[in-house]
Computed example of a mutant assay.
Amino acid sequence: MTLSGVALGGSQFLLHAATSKVTQQNLLGAAAAPRQHRTISGAKNILLVGVDTRPHQDPSQLTRSDSIILVHIPADHSRAYLVSLPRDSLVDIPAYDNGATPFRGGKNKINAAFAFGSRGLSGPAALSHGFELLALTIRDLTGITPDAGTIIDFQGFKQIVQVLGKVCLYVDETTTSIHVGHDKDGKPAAPYKINPDGTVNHRIHGVTPNVYTKGNHCLDPADSLDFVRQRDLLANRDYDYGRQRHQQQFLRAVLHQVMTDGLNSPTKLPGLLTAVGRTMTVDDGGIPLEDWAFAMRGIGPDAITTIKTNGGSFNSRSVPGVGSAEILSPTSMELLHAVKVDDVGSFVEAHPTWVAPAGPGTTAH
């Protein structure tokens, strides 16, 4: 939406061309604000859910949310705040009947809401019910009723980077891949045996993993996707907080490169719009996408602030039947309240260390 509004300006034809590529679907369901007479004016909150699909995987299994971000747009529409909720956050998930496999409700990790909502379903129905239960969970936790919702497929971002050729960003901690490496002959090979739950089992002898060293990098499509997937072997051992931050940085880097490289290229633009459209599924909340794009036209990459819940520090607790879960601190709940009442700027001013740095550079060779 931002790239449409900023780069395409007043061209209604190109604006329509951009928004028409985006898949639209009712995602929020009962968690949505009333849609009658909705307007783009005032503060807005968008629930952004990232899923990490894998090639040749059964679509009915692709229902666990990989990242959960509340995007807050202040009433003056001058900037955007990205607030990530740790996927292991302990929350109360309400009872929910998706028509296939009802869920009784109870305490669990927040990303389980998407899985329980979509359980027993496939395709668009799995996405809509998974998203709805996640949105209801967040509404009960924070009091925030999302104005719109978006599912982003990180696998789809590979197609965007393919159009751009590369994405340049600052790697803020050396990151070792558990998915991609090469054997002694230089042939691609998996460096680690992975358990069914996604955790690392053991290193595979004779395979050297990809390592993304701290510093400026320009990554090709495959490496960029591999980098944002990593959580296990980060130098600072910040696991999901690190991946959360890297995904935010990646989104901002892609946006920056789209606006500086892709939109000025007549040969890249058609493929870029198609790739973006395939990456996103959007619930516009009853406000046309063209209105969203026009209202957000002043928000460029430099006007996007990413904020760390729990200050980016672990606050874990072992919970019977759930395992190790993250507990949102009282200050994190203050942040979420600031999102609800449109006072995030004051929170950031009072808690500057909670702002995730963009990194000292965005370009490299």
Rank of each mutant, 00 (worst) to 15 (best):
D183Q: 03
P209F: 09
E334K: 13
F13G: 14
T53Y: 04
P55I: 08
D238F: 03
I138S: 01
I46D: 10
E326C: 03
V258G: 01
L219H: 10
A126K: 00
A358G: 15
P94N: 03
Y192F: 14
Y212T: 13
N111F: 07
I110L: 01
Y170F: 02
A356Q: 15
A80F: 04
K158H: 05
T306L: 04
H365I: 15
H202D: 15
F131S: 01
L70G: 05
R231F: 09
K268C: 05
H202T: 14
T208E: 14
L136N: 07
S41I: 03
T363G: 15
R237P: 00
G105K: 00
Q57E: 13
V51F: 10
L15D: 13
Y241T: 02
V161T: 05
S60P: 05
L251E: 03
V319L: 09
L8E: 12
G298T: 13
D223F: 08
Q36P: 00
K158S: 09
P191N: 15
T101M: 09
R64S: 13
G198F: 04
L14S: 13
G50V: 01
D185H: 12
P102Y: 08
C218I: 11
T260E: 10
G285A: 11
K166Q: 13
T267F: 00
H246A: 13
E173F: 00
D302P: 00
G242M: 08
G298I: 09
A295D: 15
D147Y: 00
F294D: 14
W292E: 07
S316T: 11
A18R: 06
P102A: 04
G50Y: 01
Q247H: 07
K166G: 00
H256S: 09
C168I: 03
G215R: 11
A112H: 06
S128I: 01
R243K: 03
Q247K: 04
L169V: 02
I194A: 12
Q24T: 15
F314M: 05
D185F: 06
V171M: 03
P102G: 08
H37M: 08
V254Q: 01
A222K: 13
P352W: 15
A253G: 02
